[in-house]
Structures are given as C-alpha cells and as structure tokens.
Computed example of a mutant assay.
Amino acid sequence: MYITITPQKLGASYSKSSADFVDYLEKENQALEGELPSGGAENIEHFFNQYEDEISAEEVVRKIDGNTAKLEKTEPRFYSITVNPSKYELKRFQNHSEDLKKYTRELMKDYVKSFNREINGRPVSIDDIKYYAKIEHRRAFKGTDKQVKENQPFATKILQLKTNIRKVQRGEITGSIENIQREINQLERQAPHQQNGQRIVQGMQKDGNQSHIHIIVSRKDASNRFSLSPGSKYRASQVELNGKTIKRGFDRDQFFKNAEKTFDKTFGYHRNFVETYKARKQFIKNPKTYFASLTGLPASEKAIAFKILKETGIPLVPSIPVSQTQLALKLFHKLRKGIDIAVKSSSIGI
C-alpha cells in the first residue's frame, strides 16, 4: 500500500476553487464517455463520501469551495490523499469498486483519529470532516516513471530519424526512407521497457489492475470553524494559548500504521514483512537492521519477500552472503537508486 497526503498545489498561492482538481479527477469518466457505447456508463465511477454515493462533481466543488472560511491565500483549501493498493492487496477484493469504497470509509476513520485535536472538548470524529473520494481503474505512464526515462534516449533517436524521413520527402536531404524506417523499427525493439510488444512512452495506459483511490478533504472541519491540517509540522503536542492548553498536530506515522492494519483486518490479508510500514521505514533509516530482519524470516516468508522485492525492481545479488552485515553493506549503495521504488511498492508511503 502506498498512501500520499499532499496539499492543494497550484503555484505560489492557492486557488480559491477546487474546480481544476475535481475536473482532473473526472478524466477517467470523460475518457469512458468518449469511447464506444459498450465502454459504457455502467463503468462510470462517481464521487462518494462517508454516507453518500453518486455525488456529482459540481456538488463536490460547491461543498469544498464553500468550506474555506478565514483561510489565507497562502493556506491550502484542501488536501489530496491518494491510496494505491499493491497488486497483492488488490487480489483480496471480490468487487474492486465496492471493496475500495468500503476501505476508504474505514481509512477515513483512521484519518480523524490521527489528529491531536479537540472540537468542543471532544476528539475529532468522522462527522467533523468534509471529504469526497473517487475510485479510478486506469493509470498512464508519466514522464517521471523509470520506464519512460530509461526509454527516452531511444525516443530521442527515433524522433530525429522521423524528422529525417520528412526531410528526405521534402528533398532537403538525400537518403533511403526504407533504411531509415528499418533503423527506427530496430530502435523500437531495442528500447529496454516494452508493454505488449510496444515501446513504453508517456501517456500509454498501464496494463494490469490499476485500481486506486483519490480523496479530496477540506482543510476546514464540517462546521467551517476549525482548521484540520494533516500537513501540520507538529506530530502531537500541546501549547499554551491565552491561558488554555491547546492540542495540535497530526500523526502521519500513526495514520500509516493504522491504515495498514485496517486493510489487513477488513480483508483478512496476511502482510509479508517487506510490505509493512515498519519494514519500509526501517529500510530507509537502518538498512543493516532491515536486511538482518529480512534474512531472519522463516524460509517460506523469506521466499515471498524476495519475490516481492525482485518484482519491484530492487537490484539483488545472486547469492545471499552469510554475514547479515556483509549483505547490508554490499546492497546498500545499489539500493539507494531503488529507494523511491521500494517505498512506493507494496507498502504505505513514508
């Protein structure tokens, strides 16, 4: 599971409206509507919240935009939470849309529990927040993806060769169009990352189950009186204000841990060591301890762990040294390049 929490991002100051972001979340529906009728309306995913289904995009914009009292231009109006289950976790679902919706509603209970705040003398509850969620089933390769970046040198050469073909056709240069096309075809095949026999490029739809969740949650509570920021730099603390002790902060660490536990409990999922939030955090902070824990797993768990690591693109040496310290030191420098992949795959993000 990979979960991110990010503030509304629209430049130096924050837009007064959530319309652009909501429109972005409608992109999959717009694509479906533009396809053949068999692609159809039955596949459209609507916005939903804790208690309601089939909420329109217009209502989401109206409710989020109308809940921004006393916020400065330099403060985000809303936060975006993205929930990306791994392919192993997705296999636990019987009905992807309904199960993801069920998980979202449980996840948001964990979200409110992570605030070290009180409203009218009581802890923040699920009814104190205003959020809307949207399930998507497609993903496209981005320019920042490893596959696109590593294919880029080939893309650059292919583009130049295609330009040469046009120049030959216009008589600007001499050459054989057939030979140039043959070279292009060869480069297409040589590109290191392929999908269904095609070179992976930016914008190409990813194969496989890509179901994930987007959540837009208002910065202000449902009463439009209190600010609830998951981006607070304070994890959980207290401060004296006008002679009163005020609680403040949001514990992301606790949120990620609980999100993982909630998924496992809800869907009866047995989480391997390398999929856990604890392991991913340990991987970054203390790789020696991480690999000591990894090599100490029972044989069956270790086999699954290394299968997951291999599939996520982390380089591994062919054989495992006996010394755990030797293993950690030998792999650490190689693993530095794979940290982003490691964090984003099979576990809650950090």
Rank of each mutant, 00 (worst) to 15 (best):
Pro7Val: 15
Lys9Pro: 03
Leu10Val: 15
Ser13Ala: 12
Ser13Pro: 00
Ala19His: 04
Val22Lys: 03
Tyr24Arg: 07
Tyr24Ile: 11
Leu25Val: 08
Glu28Gln: 11
Glu33Pro: 00
Gly34Arg: 13
Glu35Arg: 05
Ala41Gly: 03
Glu42Phe: 13
Glu42Cys: 05
Ile44Glu: 07
Tyr51Phe: 13
Tyr51Arg: 05
Glu52Trp: 13
Glu52Lys: 07
Glu54Gly: 01
Glu59Leu: 12
Val60Tyr: 06
Arg62Cys: 01
Thr68Asp: 11
Leu71Thr: 02
Thr74Arg: 04
Pro76Tyr: 01
Arg77Phe: 07
Phe78Gln: 01
Val83Ala: 05
Asn84His: 09
Glu89Ala: 04
Glu89Phe: 00
Leu90Cys: 02
His96Trp: 14
Ser97Val: 13
Asp99Phe: 02
Leu100Arg: 02
Leu100Trp: 05
Lys102Cys: 05
Glu106Tyr: 08
Tyr111Glu: 10
Val112Cys: 04
Lys113Leu: 09
Ser114Arg: 06
Asn116Cys: 07
Asn116Thr: 11
Ile119Leu: 13
Arg122Ser: 10
Val124Glu: 02
Asp128Glu: 06
Lys134Asp: 11
Lys134Met: 13
Glu136Thr: 11
Phe141Ile: 08
Lys142Tyr: 12
Asp145Trp: 05
Asp145Asn: 10
Gln147Met: 10
Asn151Leu: 08
Ala155Glu: 14
Ile158Phe: 07
Ile158Trp: 02
Leu159Ile: 07
Lys162Glu: 15
Thr163Lys: 03
Ile165Val: 13
Arg166Trp: 11
Lys167Cys: 03
Val168Ala: 00
Gln169Asp: 07
Gly171Gln: 06
Gly171Asn: 05
Asn179Met: 12
Ile180Asn: 00
Ile180Ala: 04
Glu183Arg: 05
Ile184Arg: 01
Glu188Gly: 00
Ala191Leu: 04
Pro192Ser: 07
Gln194Lys: 06
Asn196Leu: 12
Gln198Ile: 07
Gln202Gly: 04
Gln205Gly: 03
Lys206Ala: 06
Gly208Val: 12
Gly208Met: 11
Asn209Pro: 01
Asn209Arg: 02
Ser211Asp: 14
Ser211Met: 09
Val217Gln: 02
Ser218Ala: 14
Asp221Tyr: 03
Asp221Val: 01
Ala222Val: 14
Ala222Pro: 00
Ser223Asp: 12
Ser227Ile: 15
Ser227Glu: 12
Ser227His: 04
Ser229Val: 04
Ser229Thr: 15
Ser229Cys: 10
Gly231Ser: 09
Tyr234Cys: 02
Tyr234Thr: 10
Arg235Gln: 10
Ser237Tyr: 09
Ser237Pro: 01
Asn242Cys: 00
Gly243Phe: 01
Gly249Trp: 11
Asp251Met: 09
Asp251Asn: 12
Phe256Tyr: 15
Glu260His: 01
Thr262Gln: 03
Phe263Val: 07
Thr266Glu: 15
Thr266Met: 13
Gly268Ala: 05
Tyr269Cys: 04
Tyr277Gln: 09
Ala279Leu: 08
Ile284Glu: 07
Lys285Pro: 00
Asn286Thr: 15
Thr289Leu: 13
Tyr290Ala: 06
Thr295Pro: 00
Ser300Gln: 13
Lys302Ala: 11
Ala303Met: 13
Ala303Lys: 09
Ile304Asn: 05
Phe306Leu: 14
Leu309Tyr: 05
Gly313Asn: 02
Pro315Asp: 14
Leu316Asp: 04
Val317Trp: 08
Pro318Glu: 15
Pro318Tyr: 14
Ser319Ala: 08
Ser319Pro: 00
Pro321Lys: 10
Val322Glu: 14
Ser323Pro: 00
Gln324Thr: 12
Lys330Arg: 09
Lys337Asn: 11
Gly338Ala: 15
Ile341Met: 07
Val343Ser: 04
